[in-house]
């Protein structure tokens, strides 16, 4: 799917895995498609064979998205300011792709400096796990 070698890429470390995949802790982020592609693949280096997620930068599709990361997650990832955090959302890819959705309830938060990462859980935020990437016409 991409020519990049996973071993050359910086590793993201999810200390508690992801909900549903508690043992998947080490991932690499690999671009999906050409350099204009808004999507990347988060590929697991652990246990479960070939586990990967498509992710995107939420600001590209949801410019108003402003999740409030809880203090526990911020502390666990040692985030000192909002600039320390890289925010990604997991995409559920459908066929046809126009119906693909993004999980805005559980964004992935990465500390840009340490590469520590976690899937945050936004309680009572009004965000959901299946927000359409492409608004229906």
């Amino acid at each position: 799917m991409t020519g990049a070698s996973a071993s050359e890429l910086p590793e993201l470390h999810f200390a508690s895995g992801l909900p549903g995949f508690p043992d998947a802790r080490r991932f690499v982020l690999v671009r999906l498609g050409d350099e204009l592609s808004p999507f990347s693949v988060l590929r697991s280096l652990d246990g479960e064979a070939d586990l990967e997620f498509v992710v995107t930068h939420p600001g590209l599709f949801f410019p108003d998205y402003a999740p409030e990361i809880d203090d526990d997650t911020a502390e666990r990832l040692e985030l000192r300011s909002a600039d320390d955090a890289l925010l990604l959302v997991i995409v559920t890819v459908t066929n046809p792709v126009d119906a693909s959705t993004a999980n805005l309830l559980g964004p992935i938060v990465v500390n840009r400096h340490t590469r520590a990462a976690a899937q945050a859980v936004l309680g009572a935020s009004g965000y959901n796990t299946r927000e359409a990437l492409v608004p229906s016409p």
Binding site: V93, N95, T129
Partner: peptide
């Protein structure tokens, strides 16, 4: 979140091919 992650995990190669053509709508703040 568990259910959403399981549904999103490891999409098929065919599905990914179509996805790379998908571009975000134009936003000023993109």
């Amino acid at each position: 979140l568990e259910a959403s992650n399981r549904a999103a995990a490891s999409p098929s190669f065919g599905a990914l091919e179509g996805l790379t053509a998908l571009r975000p709508p134009k936003h000023d703040s993109g």
